[in-house]
Amino acid sequence: MNALAARRRHPAAIAILIMLGLILTGALYAAVAPRPADAGTASADTVEMGRGLFLANCASCHGTNAEGLKLGDGDRVAGPTLVGVGKAAVDFQMGTGRMPMTVPGVQAPRMDEIKFTEKEISAIGDYIASLAPGPNVPSEEAVDPTKGDAARGGSLFRVNCAMCHNSAGAGGALTRGKYAPSLSGVIPRHIYEAMETGPQNMPVFSDRNLSATDKRDIIAFLKTVENQPSPGGMTLGSLGPVAEGLFAWVFALGLLVACAIWLGKKAA
């Protein structure tokens, strides 16, 4: 400890401290970073069970008949109407942990912790679907990435999705604090449902815009890119030149300056 204390004024001390701090932060982040949620297939359940769950967990914002609730000055909707949104919307919103929304904010974030079982979510979905017809949860086959054409999906993705979600699906900013989330780790079914139902500010890509085949191709593209090892090494979050520039300034320059300092220092 004494030796350590004596060297605390060594010029390299700050650099070493910063490095240690960075490594520690990285390690901590890796330990607590969000992991993809996993959900199995939905099973049929009674509408009645769904209604019960809905009344207990959702009705405070969406109204006892899912008709939506308005608060205060007219356009501040506490919860939109869910009549006609379909089982797909319920599966997406609850399956990704966005609903029930814990804290009001500009946007419901994806959560690690899913508060409901597959069965419960399916039941609530059945209840919502019983109110009015809407998009259903897609079949296993409809979202199977191995059955899609990744290259065609890529062309569709770049035109329809990349401007918000980034060409690698890393996410991007929208206006006033809203954002298009990262698509990595999202299961194919949820990607499909998001396109079909247009959650929050995302536009709806119904089958009349992007057909079922188009959607499966897009899923195939996303999963191919996600599962592909990075040929060149670390991707720096696939954020492009900003991340690369930051890396050059902090890490590469730091390394080279450290070498230069060593070079200019008198040998012992």
Binding site: M163, S167, S230, G233, P241, V242, F247
Partner: peptide, 26 residues
């Protein structure tokens, strides 16, 4: 060890699409 300008991620240029996070080099 660290990738840079992974052009295959962006796809070919086309005036219609665009990617979020469009920046020049620093």
């Amino acid at each position: 060890l660290v990738g840079i300008n992974s052009v295959w991620v962006y796809g070919p240029y086309d005036p219609s699409p665009v990617t979020a996070g469009s920046q020049p080099d620093w």
